[in-house]
Nucleic acid binder design. Structure first.
Lengths: 347, 347
DNA sequence: CTGAAAGCGCTAACAC
DNA sequence: GTGTTAGCGCTTTCAG
């Protein structure tokens, strides 16, 4: 009862022994109740919970982690850019992690380079996490860290990553295909593509989807243009594309780039969508209010995060059992006014 | 040497005793070296570091936290919306936290309501953090959690929060004032304001700045309009404002809302900036590429986060010493093309 | 400058 | 159903 401050922590924070004493049980029983373990009588359970509440007891996570070998936390390596896509994905991940009963630790990388990712993973490992999510992996190089916890690669192929790696699709290829098909359905002979940096899996997946859509109808595949996700890079690309009269439809790998592209096109006298149709990628709602309102495909951030987390948690908690692979997330096309039939079309 | 797997963790992860043995020193000395404590000879230091590297030794954070009473981590309560502003702030916070040598734990709230914040703070406390950052506090209600670690309120007045609360300004009032002054300097008789939800401190601070700018020149203060940060709400507000011929200049409390507002204005036949000038708030670079390119003020996310963290870390590490309050972050006006002199002005 | 002993608060294994 | 015992791997205190 007359306990003075612990060596480091706040003065006289109650310990499980205090709860045990007040409830008239052993410490282990307190532990059982607080961990929702079976084989505790309802009466005892109630008493323990009441005692804990009365004391304002809070389980000490460090002690728990030390004793159990599990931190109950998951680390995410995110991209330190505040774009709508990456930010939405992080929000979705946070929710999925929290819903799974884990705590979330975040480390950002500047540009997702393998070295950066390795550093981030390393720092997560230092902190002690039960699992890691790499939210935007890049394709080049190898992440050179020995990892002994499961790692979820969101949107990367299974080949990438070491042992205990799991992957979940964000459905980028399907989304890209739907976007391209939308343009083709409108009557365009072919569709140009402004991609993200090809070092990114996200960018590559979308290129794949675009290629697949074109190939499925036997259409010509124009050379692709590469941007860096920014609106500025979209603008630069747009200036080039505007000079080519063959261009009547462009699928752009991100809403921001699409806005930059439209800017350049308009500036060059090519009206959108009258002369050139443009479809974006992400689904940022603000672009319903620009001129012209941007047609786009909405990324299923929540579904992808939830599904990925299901896999990761499974890998953490039941490493030996098998888990069916994730189903593809839904495709959602948001048709607004930046796409239309081609100019010469008998619409 | 023949140690089998610890009870929980990965098989035979090296412990400090292993490093100590290899380096021929005591465990305490290993601890000293790894914590950069003084009073270790360079020779010993080198030997320990080499041994640690050779073994791939990683300090066990749970044990360290348990023994020291410090987790070396900081928790942030963020807003679970993927807007440019909140996302940028989170990125800035992550960097500042990492640079300070702490790990970052994130809990999002849906809308920043006091209850939500209380829940989030509680979960952070459960996890065990040395300090907490509430990144977007709302004004109503009281956060009803007993907190025994320092809390940083970004952009909230000192009055808010319990003991050990520190606050840092994001300079919202100054920014708002600069935005309003810009419009006034252009020759507008007065400036209307589309605010964010007034439950937010962020929204209120901007209102203050707007009022102050108007008052300083003895201008009429039109009634303010309240949005919810979304472009849609900006559009709704714009439909109302468009009907009022007195409106020639609007300061909008967020870029997205400004885009929605411009949309509505344009739709109603009021040209921007010819008939009505609009200035946003945030500094999202994508809006340099819309029509018209949006004039805005850039929020100093990095400076605010850095400054706030300096204060928080100080409160954590040297609770008894005084720390000078933060200086105001810089004001950066980004003049593009959505603002111009008023229609009747003899420009 | 370095080491020995003690203990942080919890959970795992096993006994009852 | 419940209690006992023994650590998890580190830092702290204090002695040299």
């Amino acid at each position: 009862m007359t306990r003075v401050a612990g060596r480091g922590g706040s003065p006289s924070a109650p310990r499980s022994a205090d709860v045990a004493q007040l409830a008239g049980v052993s410490r282990k029983t307190v532990s059982r109740v607080l961990n929702n373990e079976p084989y505790v009588s309802d009466d005892v359970r109630r008493r323990v919970i009441e005692a804990a509440e009365k004391l304002g007891y809070r389980l000490n996570n460090a002690a728990r982690a030390l004793a159990s070998g599990r931190t109950r936390s998951i680390g995410v390596v995110a991209l330190g850019t505040a774009g709508y896509g990456t930010a939405s994905l992080l929000v979705a991940i946070e929710k999925a992690v929290r819903d799974s009963g884990y705590a979330l630790r975040v480390v950002n990388t500047l540009d997702g380079e393998p070295d950066d990712i390795a550093r981030a993973v390393d720092s997560l490992l230092d902190q002690g996490v039960d699992g890691i999510i790499v939210s935007e992996p890049v394709i080049e190089g190898e992440v050179s860290v020995r990892v002994d916890v499961p790692v979820l690669f969101l949107g990367a192929p299974p080949a990438f990553g070491g042992p205990r790696a799991v992957t979940a699709s964000v459905g980028a290829d399907l989304l890209a295909r739907a976007a391209t098909d939308h343009l083709l359905d409108l009557g365009h002979q072919t569709v140009h593509h402004l991609a993200g940096p090809l070092r990114w899996y996200a960018a590559r997946d979308r290129v794949e989807g675009w290629r697949a859509a074109l190939a499925a109808r036997g259409r010509h595949q124009p050379p692709l243009v590469e941007g860096d996700w920014s609106a500025d890079s979209g603008y630069q690309a747009g200036r080039k594309l505007a000079a080519d009269p063959e261009v009547t439809a462009v699928f752009v790998s991100g809403d921001d780039m699409a806005i930059g592209l439209i800017h350049a096109l308009t500036e060059a006298g090519r009206r959108v969508p009258h002369d050139v149709s443009v479809i974006g990628f992400d689904g940022n709602p603000v672009f319903a209010h620009v001129t012209p309102p941007l047609t786009t495909v909405r990324q299923p951030f929540d579904a992808a995060a939830r599904e990925g987390l299901r896999l990761l948690v499974h890998a953490i908690e039941k490493p030996d059992t098998h888990m069916p692979p994730a189903s593809d997330p839904p495709v959602e096309l948001v048709v607004r006014a930046s796409t239309a039939p081609p100019p010469s079309s008998p619409s």
